[in-house]
Design a protein around this nucleic acid. Structure first.
Length: 570
RNA sequence: ACGAGUGUAGUGUAGUGGUUAUCACCGGGCGUUGCCAACGCCUGAACCCGGGUUCAAAUCCCGGCACUCGUACCA
């Protein structure tokens, strides 16, 4: 047995087909892992619980978009710029830095410089912060996105594997807006793979190059943010507010207290914190190992207003597993600007229509047309955008192309326009909780992994919540007799016919060994078929966590299992 | 990314130039037992990959890959 708990845990996960290195027979690839037969079921149940947790709310729907993403989308989102970090290392002391960080204060916009210029500035003006030497290596761009081409050969369009699922949901905003009858708030969830070519992935499932993410984009009217009742969550939770803010220091607060004290800055964000906690506890994360940490102003993306990490504690320390960010209107506005689409907005109906009286110069197109020919369109446009009308005609009208046009009295009619305005278009804000599924699965396993002793021998039990257990029951014929096998086979197929339930039969080896095997992969219940089963149709049910047994009929078993948890029988 | 260490069956390991590659658990078969990793017999399964040195390499050297630790990085 290995010295360290984490080694014993990972060895169990490999041995039992939960999580194992990918492409192992070819030497493996760092940052890629496989879920085996047992792990894949656990992961699926976590993802299904997640989808169900949010979609049962009513105003959130599931969508699914491609992982292949055209370059333009990721240029607009900022990923192409942000993920092209230039790295440089000091040849004297071997420290590695992001080149743009070193240039801060020397150059206004270091991101915009090509590598050779960065190199030049570095060697002239910057010394190593660690050892003060000026002996820089070659500047290398580190692109964290996997690039590819859509289409054949050189005609292919540049694309990337998505670094987050969010952009796909922003692309679907117009469809969502229609689906929800054009009224906010509403949200979309998406689960799937994301890709980041990490410089040095380590820590097993914590930093992967291809990983399972689950993201929720909740679109709201910033002037009318949803403020759900937070008083139903009365248990305080651990929070670490912005270390640069006035509430710095770990504290234990309810969500509503944190919101009223101004620690959580947005009511909808507070509500997502609460709902996130509920989800994690539901799938078996240990509540005492969950905390929320607020980003400091400098850590936060420039557009975000309030950003929290939900961190889970395990063998790797405190790990960010969920990020909850108020992304404001940033993404939708960027895509509107880059694509020219006018579909990325929402309509805000005024409570009562506003009458607006406006003096305008209405163009007389029969005069303007012949007078300005090709520029006529521009002139009409500029007239309609005049805020202050000139006091007298003729006057010089400023056009958008920089030229001016002389407007004479016969070209326009002065008129007073009375319009009724019923509302306005605006760009919704978006609150985004983003979950790292693999990291959550890891912590579920970590928290469930319990090492005990049985008759002086080490004994491991995976105390998984039954919601995420790979099988609901294990069916074990006490011994290898045709009558018992038949009953066990029968019980297994009945269990498998209950929607959403899975049972597995195991008739090998001794009964103690089979109990041990199913304990190790976290099956919560073992159903044993014995002599009495042949006589009277009853079976024993053994509870994983305390090995307590009761006897009941197969009918009761099936009935209870289809209704809920077998613990009702104890 | 840099540096150091490690890489032997499914898992944990022994082996420091010549072994049929050790042991345990593990998997499969047969028998036996019959409710918590029981027992007996049989059986399955490994030297990370590629090159080099040597008559001979798991063992020494070089390169790659992976893991661990430290430093760095981490939208």
């Amino acid at each position: 047995m290995s010295e360290r708990r984490i080694d014993r845990l990972t060895s169990l996960l490999r041995r039992r087909g939960v999580v194992l290195p990918s492409f192992d027979i070819y030497g493996g690839v760092s940052g890629l892992v496989d879920y085996g037969p047992v792990g894949a079921r656990i992961k699926r149940k976590v993802v299904d619980s997640w989808i169900d947790h949010w979609t049962s709310q009513g105003d959130i729907v599931e969508v699914d978009s491609p992982t292949l993403t055209p370059e333009a989308v990721l240029v607009a989102s900022g990923h192409v710029g942000e993920f092209n970090d230039l790295m440089v290392s000091c040849e004297s002391c071997e420290s590695t830095f992001r080149a743009d960080h070193l240039l801060e204060g020397v150059h206004d916009n270091p991101d915009s410089l090509p590598p050779d210029e960065v190199s030049t500035i570095l060697s002239k003006a910057i010394s190593c912060p660690t050892c003060s030497e000026t002996n820089w290596s070659e500047v290398r761009p580190m692109n964290l996105m996997f690039s590819t081409k859509i289409g054949a050969m050189s005609r292919g369009r540049s694309a990337y594997m998505r670094p987050e699922t969010a952009q796909g949901m922003f692309m679907l905003y117009p469809a969502l807006f229609r689906h929800f009858k054009q009224s906010l708030p509403f949200g979309a969830v998406q689960t799937g793979k994301g890709y980041r070519n990490e410089i040095s992935p380590r820590q097993g499932m914590i930093r992967l190059r291809e990983f399972n993410m689950a993201e929720l984009e909740y679109f709201i009217d910033p002037e009318l943010p949803p403020c759900p009742d937070l008083s139903v969550w009365s248990t305080p939770v651990t929070m670490i507010p912005d270390p640069e803010g006035e509430h710095a220091g770990e504290c234990n607060l309810t969500y509503s207290d944190a919101l009223s004290k101004g620690i959580i800055r947005h009511p909808t964000v507070a509500w997502f914190l609460a709902r996130t906690m509920d989800f994690l506890v539901n799938v078996g994360v240990d509540q005492s190992k969950i905390r929320f940490r607020q980003h400091s102003g400098t850590e936060m993306a420039h557009y975000a207003e309030d950003c929290w990490d939900c961190e889970l504690h395990g063998e790797h320390g405190w790990i960010e597993c969920v990020g909850i960010a108020n992304r404001t209107c940033h993404d939708l506005e960027s895509h509107e600007a880059a694509s020219g689409s006018k579909l990325l907005r929402a309509w805000r109906q005024y409570e009562r229509p506003r009458k607006e009286v406006k003096d305008i110069l209405s163009p007389v197109s029969s005069v303007i047309g012949p007078a300005f020919k090709g520029r006529a369109g521009n002139v009409v446009e500029a007239l309609s955008q005049l805020v202050e009308l000139p006091s007298k005609l003729p006057f010089e009208l400023q056009l958008s192309d920089g030229t001016t046009a002389k407007i004479t009295p016969e070209m326009v009619t002065r008129r007073t326009n009375e319009v009724t305005v019923h509302g306005e278009w605006f760009t919704p804000h978006v609150i985004e909780p983003a979950f790292g599924i693999d990291r959550i699965v890891w912590h579920i396993l970590d928290h469930a992994f319990t090492e005990t002793e049985k008759e002086g021998e080490p004994y491991s039990v995976m105390r998984l919540n039954s919601r995420v257990a790979p099988y609901d029951v294990a069916v074990l014929p006490l011994f290898d007799k045709p009558e018992m096998l038949e009953i066990a086979q029968n019980v297994t197929s009945i269990v498998n016919s209950i929607p959403g339930r899975k049972g597995e039969m195991d008739s090998t080896k001794s009964i103690g060994r089979r109990y041990a095997r199913v304990d190790e992969i976290g099956v919560p219940w073992a159903v044993t078929v014995d002599h009495d089963s042949i006589e009277d149709g009853t079976v024993t049910i053994r509870r994983r966590d305390d090995q307590k047994q009761i006897r009941c009929s197969v009918d009761d078993l099936v009935d209870t299992l289809s209704r809920g948890d077998l613990s009702a029988l104890f």
